[in-house]
């Protein structure tokens, strides 16, 4: 057979990473802790599963340090389902991320649900072949993560609470600020760039005890000036297209079909459901209902139909009852 001349293939490109995230759009990614749960998620129409040792509600209840899951659990889940498998690494823990990449997970969630490993920096995600998803509470966090190479964003919400209020807050913060970008002139854009780049500068100043100038290397191999340039470019793009240049999902506190549909109506490209499914009375039915609600997010008749006879949702927690230092969304910067 005559073979066409083909050049060497390229892997791990930005197009492939962001493209993978695009294939998740309009879908539900479900947290699972066993192969059995993963199968239920797949059968219910999940686009992907997040393989974990404990769901956020249990991590919250147990306390202590939460780390990357035991790899045997992740491997078993990968062997069981044919949909993509994601897994969480601690904020800044690039070795956990390398390990997950080696294992072959399809996407790493650099997640505030786990205990942060680096008090100064997030992972330089450009150094990886597999794509990353990161959480954000506002535009500044999102822009930094996108500049660091995140191929997908999600709201942080307040994971493990079954309370949607923080996810809504974060989505509104992002939407409002994105719209506001459209009104900013060049000078204001530069000021905002300075503000959003500041956390890299601050970390380096704490570490070195010296003032940072534009030529100082402040993160991996990047100077402060290069970072500001990069942040500016991300902001300019968001200003122009009036949305993130990467896929944006809702996460943190989604417990019902209506919760999921509301986040979609607010502009999310899809949803992550953590504790909401397997901490509810009837996971199989709830999982299916949430998938349908995401597909038909703007059709109340369908949301109404799937919201019947689901049994109890997970127990919810009022955010005010959680001491600020125990709020997961405060992790990361």
């Amino acid at each position: 057979m005559k073979r066409p001349e083909v050049p060497k293939l390229k892997v791990g490109t930005e197009k492939l990473k962001k493209g993978f995230a695009k294939m998740q759009k309009g879908g539900v990614v479900m947290d699972v802790t066993t192969a059995e749960q993963a199968k239920i998620a797949e059968d219910s129409g999940a686009v992907a599963v997040m393989a974990l040792e404990r769901v956020p509600a249990d991590i919250r209840a147990d306390g202590g340090v939460a780390r990357m899951a035991d790899l045997s659990i992740i491997q078993e889940i990968m062997d069981t389902v044919s949909i993509p498998v994601m897994a969480k690494a601690r904020i800044g823990h690039f070795t956990e991320a390398q390990t997950l990449e080696f294992l072959g997970v399809d996407m790493v969630d650099e997640s505030e649900v786990l205990t942060p490993a680096d008090p100064f920096y997030h992972i330089d995600k450009h150094k990886f072949t597999i794509p990353f998803v990161c959480g954000c509470r506002n535009l500044g966090e999102a822009v930094r993560r996108i500049w660091e190479g995140a191929a997908m964003m999600r709201t942080k919400g307040e994971a493990g609470t079954g309370n949607i209020v923080e996810a809504v807050r974060h989505q509104r913060m992002v939407t409002t600020m994105t719209r506001k970008l459209g009104e900013l002139d060049k000078n204001e854009m530069h000021n905002l760039t300075e503000e959003y780049s500041n956390s890299y500068k601050k970390s380096t100043e704490i570490l070195t005890g010296r003032k940072v100038d534009d030529s100082t290397i402040v993160f991996e191999e990047y100077t402060y000036e290069q970072i500001k340039q990069g942040i500016f470019e991300v902001l300019e793009e968001i200003k122009k297209i009036q949305r993130f240049p990467v896929v944006n999902f809702a996460a943190g506190g989604i417990a019902t079909p209506a919760d999921a549909a509301m986040m979609m109506q607010m502009g999310s490209d899809g949803v992550f459901v953590g504790s909401g499914i397997f901490k509810s009375q009837n996971p199989r039915e709830r999982a299916k209902a949430i998938v349908e609600a995401v597909t038909h997010y703007d059709e109340p008749a369908i949301i109404a139909k799937v919201s019947k006879n689901l049994g109890d949702a997970m127990d919810g927690i009022e955010i005010e009852t959680i001491p600020p230092e125990q709020r997961l969304q405060e992790r990361g910067w």
Binding site: K15, G19, F20, M107
Partner: peptide, 26 residues
């Protein structure tokens, strides 16, 4: 393969004069 084996590659498509950069994701 899985996502880490996803790739971009120039392919020859019948009837196309020039190669086409095709994006393969899982």
């Amino acid at each position: 393969g899985r996502q880490k084996e996803s790739f971009e590659q120039n392919i020859q498509i019948k009837g196309f004069a020039m190669p086409y950069n095709a994006v393969f994701i899982r």
